[in-house]
Computed example of a mutant assay.
Amino acid sequence: MAVFLTLVMQLLKSVIRDTPLEPVARRVYRSLAFTDQNAIYDRQTIQVLKHHLKDDSVCIDIGTHRGEILLEMMTIAPRGRHFAFEPIAHLAASLRRRFPQTHIYELALSHRCGEIEFQYVVNDPGYSGIQRRIYHLPEPQIQTIVVQTNRLDNIIPPDVPVSFIKIDIEGAEYLAMCGGVETIKRNRPIIVFEAGKESTSCYGINPEQIFDFLENECQLRVSTMKRWLQGESSFSRKQFCEHFNQALDYYFIAYPSS
């Protein structure tokens, strides 16, 4: 994929620049680059799971989609309890069929309970979320549906020792964290989460809020998965904000200091 992206950029520079095809070519390039980076983050997430989980670890998958990461959680921690959250009805139904031993909730986790309008992207459901975001799609087909919302703290029993949480809900990750603040503070799990200007900022959330919540409220350090896997130091507040604002990364890890 990296070689193909390089060829696309060379073609853009040499042939298409300043022609009517340039905007289309740039959209294609951004879409392919985004897909390639997602695959890298998925591989890093699996490495974190293998490094951190025991065979009986408790995991939470928020924004389960089709269950790719949930499957890895269950494979690495087969004796653990697993909780999965997916608000799109047909995806949640499919997850129940595939993972009957897992707690599947047809919910959009947030900082409050009730019903809310939800932006379902028909031609790429992985982009779906409570708010519209910047899409790496030429023509996103969006349907507004109504889904149930709840707080993670209302669902996870206090005596369940949560070890790992993955949150990928297209910009609403901070809201889900706020709705699970007691669960996070009680367990201090590793959290792998998405956060970026093209999604998070559409909710009016800035990187300072995320960093301060995790570092000060939850006593968790923040970094990238790559840095964590290599044993490098965590981010300062300034470093995290730079990575967020400059789009150097859009997937991060929060973890306890010991």
Results as ranks from 00 to 15, higher is better:
residue 210 I to D: 00
residue 6 T to A: 15
residue 149 T to P: 03
residue 224 T to M: 13
residue 210 I to M: 11
residue 219 Q to W: 06
residue 186 R to Q: 02
residue 133 R to V: 15
residue 256 P to H: 11
residue 25 A to S: 15
residue 71 L to C: 04
residue 41 Y to A: 01
residue 170 E to Y: 02
residue 204 G to S: 09
residue 242 E to Y: 08
residue 24 V to E: 08
residue 119 Q to E: 07
residue 69 I to A: 00
residue 115 E to A: 07
residue 234 S to N: 04
residue 206 N to C: 11
residue 250 Y to R: 06
residue 164 F to T: 01
residue 241 C to G: 03
residue 2 A to N: 12
residue 33 A to R: 12
residue 83 F to Y: 15
residue 29 Y to N: 09
residue 61 D to I: 01
residue 194 E to I: 06
residue 249 D to P: 02
residue 123 N to Y: 03
residue 92 A to R: 04
residue 9 M to W: 12
residue 3 V to D: 14
residue 145 I to P: 06
residue 84 A to F: 00
residue 107 L to P: 03
residue 9 M to C: 06
residue 257 S to P: 06
residue 192 V to L: 06
residue 188 R to C: 08
residue 160 V to N: 00
residue 72 E to Y: 09
residue 143 Q to D: 15
residue 32 L to G: 02
residue 138 P to G: 04
residue 213 F to A: 01
residue 34 F to M: 11
residue 226 K to I: 10
residue 219 Q to P: 00
residue 140 P to F: 13
residue 71 L to K: 11
residue 181 V to W: 00
residue 242 E to P: 01
residue 208 E to R: 10
residue 100 P to V: 08
residue 102 T to F: 00
residue 85 F to P: 02
residue 211 F to S: 02
residue 55 D to K: 13
residue 194 E to H: 13
residue 257 S to K: 15
residue 53 L to S: 07
residue 61 D to L: 01
residue 142 I to M: 11
residue 134 I to F: 12
residue 57 S to E: 09
residue 183 T to P: 00
residue 238 K to S: 05
residue 27 R to S: 13
residue 17 R to K: 14
residue 103 H to T: 03
residue 217 E to H: 08
residue 224 T to P: 14
residue 108 A to L: 08
residue 73 M to V: 04
residue 48 V to E: 01
residue 78 P to C: 10
residue 101 Q to C: 04
residue 128 S to D: 07
residue 123 N to E: 04
residue 253 I to V: 15
residue 14 S to R: 15
residue 165 I to S: 04
residue 216 N to A: 03
residue 242 E to V: 06
residue 110 S to A: 14
residue 29 Y to K: 13
residue 129 G to L: 06
residue 33 A to K: 12
residue 141 Q to V: 14
residue 89 A to N: 07
residue 243 H to P: 00
residue 185 K to Y: 08
residue 250 Y to K: 02
residue 232 E to V: 05
residue 51 H to T: 14
residue 223 S to A: 13
residue 145 I to Q: 09
residue 12 L to M: 15
residue 53 L to K: 11
residue 92 A to L: 06
residue 184 I to K: 01
residue 169 I to A: 07
residue 146 V to G: 01
residue 214 L to T: 03
residue 47 Q to V: 02
residue 61 D to V: 03
residue 204 G to H: 09
residue 130 I to Q: 11
residue 196 G to Y: 10
residue 59 C to V: 10
residue 154 N to S: 10
residue 45 T to A: 13
residue 194 E to W: 12
residue 215 E to D: 06
residue 26 R to E: 14
residue 200 T to V: 10
residue 254 A to E: 13
residue 256 P to R: 12
residue 80 G to E: 11
residue 39 A to P: 00
residue 35 T to D: 12
residue 150 N to K: 07
residue 246 Q to N: 10
residue 10 Q to V: 12
residue 160 V to C: 00
residue 119 Q to V: 01
residue 222 V to A: 09
residue 90 H to M: 06
residue 200 T to N: 07
residue 58 V to C: 12
residue 171 G to N: 07
residue 63 G to M: 09
residue 72 E to K: 12
residue 81 R to F: 07
residue 139 E to H: 15
residue 237 R to V: 01
residue 51 H to D: 13
residue 157 P to D: 03
residue 204 G to W: 09
residue 228 W to S: 07
residue 218 C to T: 05
residue 71 L to N: 08
residue 109 L to N: 02
residue 91 L to N: 10
residue 89 A to Y: 11
residue 218 C to G: 05
residue 81 R to V: 10
residue 2 A to I: 14
residue 129 G to F: 05
residue 58 V to Y: 09
